[in-house]
Design a binder for these strands. Structure first.
Lengths: 129, 129
DNA sequence: CCTTGACCTTCCCGTGACTGGAACCCCCAT
DNA sequence: ATGGGGGTTCCAGTCACGGGAAGGTCAAGG
């Protein structure tokens, strides 16, 4: 299978697939004309990567997770550790964003949003005394 | 005031302050020795920028907001529009992250986390059916 | 007077995970 | 022969800085 078909099948852009090869996440074969030839195992890995990335895992986490996936003697504790650490990051980010949203929400509510210049949003940013 | 003092006062790293000058957000004066000399107005702008960035506004949004801040004839509607658009982005991101967290949370709960290899997390990533 | 150390300057590279584009090759159909 | 739709590589850019090198400046201490 060529890269275009793989892109369609996995939903990943061809550029991304080439990038994943660049950084060593997949190793497709090559045809005589230089085209990448993808086997089922490559497809499978790309789907794995797509799902892991959709859950927000970093590329390095993906590398770790794929290694664990392929290691039949893994301990599920190792997987869980990676996942929990990632979830911690996500929760931290959610907390940050919630704080921003709350502040913004108040400011937006307080702003008339008409053609006059008075604006509590700008007052706040300017360091309202 | 030199950049170090400004960094201490605003809480922004000196690197960041130089960067903000680079991209034209502030225009401090220069002493004869080439050192930046910051006026109160520069301090004020930097504090403004720091707060806007802390609320997650992009640099371009900050540029817009500062222009509105300095425009006495602004309409608060314009400010509100920028803020609402930004809040929309934040809410979208929160929604994404919440979805990730929920999925991860289920997977993590389902994972034994011991020294055996069976792992629902990897099963899911691998396309479990 | 000289040195030390804390500042300051510019400049360039790296970050993460791609995306866009240029320039070029390959294959099939008309 | 030509056109179009694949594929290939490589380079540059994204966003908002951070790290670090190489070198100029300044106040204090010996």
């Amino acid at each position: 299978m060529n890269i275009g078909d793989v892109a369609t099948r996995t939903g990943l852009p061809a550029k991304t697939i080439r990038y994943y090869e660049d950084i060593g996440l997949i190793k497709p074969l090559r045809d005589d004309n230089g085209y990448r030839r993808f086997r089922d195992q490559d497809l499978h890995k790309l789907n794995f990567l797509g799902r892991a990335r959709a859950l927000g895992f970093t590329i390095e986490d993906c590398r770790t997770l794929m290694a664990l996936y392929e290691d039949e003697t893994r301990a599920s504790a190792d997987v869980k550790k990676v996942a929990r650490s990632h979830m911690g990051q996500i929760e931290a980010k959610i907390a940050d964003l919630n704080a921003m949203r709350d502040t913004l929400s108040h400011l937006i509510d307080a702003c008339a949003g008409d053609d006059r210049p008075d604006c509590p949003i700008l007052q706040d940013l300017g360091g309202k005394p």
